[in-house]
Design a protein around this nucleic acid. Structure first.
Lengths: 114, 114
DNA sequence: CACGTTGATACAGTATAACAGATGAATTTG
DNA sequence: CAAATTCATCTGTTATACTGTATCAACGTG
């Protein structure tokens, strides 16, 4: 992995964001629309071109049904394992009927009135 | 809790930051020095006057031996409980010999070369 | 009391995130 | 193929995080 002094926003986190967005079948435009930021900005964040403010990132992860939480360093491995297992479970359930599952939902979930 | 449209940086998070800093016996000046930001800025963050960039907040929590991690919303309660229990354990151990424990360490731990 | 520390706040100047809008390449779709 | 979609990137403007410096009140300590 290139150190690319551009990952002031951790690459791992960026990948997870992109993955979560795609799981939902949302384009950057769609995701941006939901939290009120332009497509170009979503792109900049996902590619590591800009480091978002904390509140922006929080809006982003929450609309993707995730959250950012503060944990003691000692617990990081355990929590990550927990999260990974959980996700793998979801994915397994997902490919069972290879359908986006989320993509369909055109319920226009409240844009979280920013 | 007041909604105070100032908590774009969640109050709970701010309280935890302040608490963690004090546990270590560090002043805002000392904390700021360790990650390379001025005392006034630390104050602004702790009081909710400014919303830090994600990288700034990450530097902050890491020097306080915490981390920010992305988790599925469904796991938030579980992870928070885990973190709370862990902290309570530490505190109990701490007051046993009511001594800052951290405060002493003047090992000048690498300022995490920003 | 004089002195040092801590934390909040202010101000000016700089850096950059955020926004609006546009373009173009690659890919998908009709 | 033509049209639409998606995403990266660019330009210009605005908002604001961040820096450096300084002041002040509250507190504690010599």
């Amino acid at each position: 992995m290139k150190p690319t002094r551009l990952d002031r926003l951790p690459e791992q986190l960026r990948q997870e964001l992109r993955k979560a967005r795609r799981e939902r079948g949302w384009s950057q435009l769609e995701l941006g629309r939901r939290i009120g930021i332009p497509q170009g900005h979503v792109s900049g964040i996902e590619t590591g071109k800009v480091v978002p403010r904390f509140d922006t990132l929080l809006d982003l992860v929450r609309v993707l049904d995730r959250d950012l939480i503060l944990v003691p360093r000692a617990l990081v491995p355990a929590v990550q394992a927990l999260a990974r297992d959980y996700q793998e479970g979801r994915e397994a359930r997902l490919e069972a009927g290879t359908r986006p599952l989320y993509a369909a939902e055109e319920s226009e979930g409240e844009p979280d009135g920013r």
